[in-house]
Nucleic acid binder design. Structure first.
Length: 231
DNA sequence: GCGACAG
DNA sequence: ATCTTGTCGC
């Protein structure tokens, strides 16, 4: 992956090419394992700590952690997050002993100017079903959903529905859910809501975030960690 | 030209 | 994203 040396115009071209590979359709596979992906890093540092956590579904019990440390030089530019984070995530992905049925990525899916947010980018590259779940809006218009858990409104671009604004917990800021690959808007929304417990963020995202942070702080080792089932 | 702007 | 201080509520 030579993302580090790409110019923004070149990156835009790559997004336009990958867009042709995207499949947005109702989920057509069973759901038994979900993954959560996230990145952590120190401010001003070029080292990123990537992680993917596997959870059983619908029980949401953690099964495995895959952690990878990598150098990146592509800058953070809104609309081009994938070029910073996907290479490290792909390494974490490749060392997984078993792949999840769907991967929840911290960021947007098709709710992006060229429909190529990080979740869509990762899905188009890997062939993996994916969903984007972001904490802030990048693209699209919406009205505020109701204050109750489960309330949602469409994220729109012109007439097109590109995602959902979902209240995952009563009276907290909503999250932005959009399909990445091999999912549609409705199935993405449904899955994310099923992944939410008593917190604002869905469990795959929460656990991935906790894992990469502990990894960065030296509390977890690089590589694969199998989590023993508790009996 | 002026705002907006995932992580 | 990360860091930091303070407040609210279970």
């Amino acid at each position: 992956m030579h993302y580090d040396t790409l110019s923004i115009p070149e990156a835009t071209r790559l997004q336009q090419a990958l867009r042709e590979k995207l499949v947005i359709q109702p989920r057509d596979f069973p759901l038994q394992v979900v993954g959560g992906a996230d990145i952590s890093f120190n401010r001003f540092s070029t080292t990123v700590y990537a992680g993917i956590v596997l959870l059983s579904f619908p029980a949401l019990q953690p099964l495995t952690y895959s952690l990878v440390k990598k150098e990146v030089h592509f800058p953070y530019v809104p609309g081009y997050l994938a070029f910073r984070e996907v290479p490290a995530l792909m390494e974490a992905w490749e060392q997984l002993p078993l792949k999840p049925d769907v991967l929840v990525v911290d960021g947007h899916g098709i709710a992006h100017p060229r429909r190529m947010g990080i979740a869509a980018h990762f899905g188009a590259l890997s062939g993996q079903a994916s969903i984007g779940c972001a904490k802030k809006r990048l693209f699209g218009t919406y009205t505020e959903p109701g204050p109750e858990r489960g309330a949602y409104t469409p994220l729109l671009h012109k007439e097109e529905v590109i995602g959902s604004v979902l209240r995952t917990k009563a009276h907290v800021k909503p999250v932005f859910v959009s399909p990445g690959h091999r999912m549609d808007v409705q199935d993405s929304l449904s899955l994310i809501l099923q992944c939410c417990g008593r917190y604002r963020l869905p469990e795959p995202t929460r656990l991935a975030h906790a894992a990469v942070n502990r990894f960065r702080l030296g509390e977890l080792p690089e590589g694969i960690t199998q989590i023993p089932a508790d009996h």
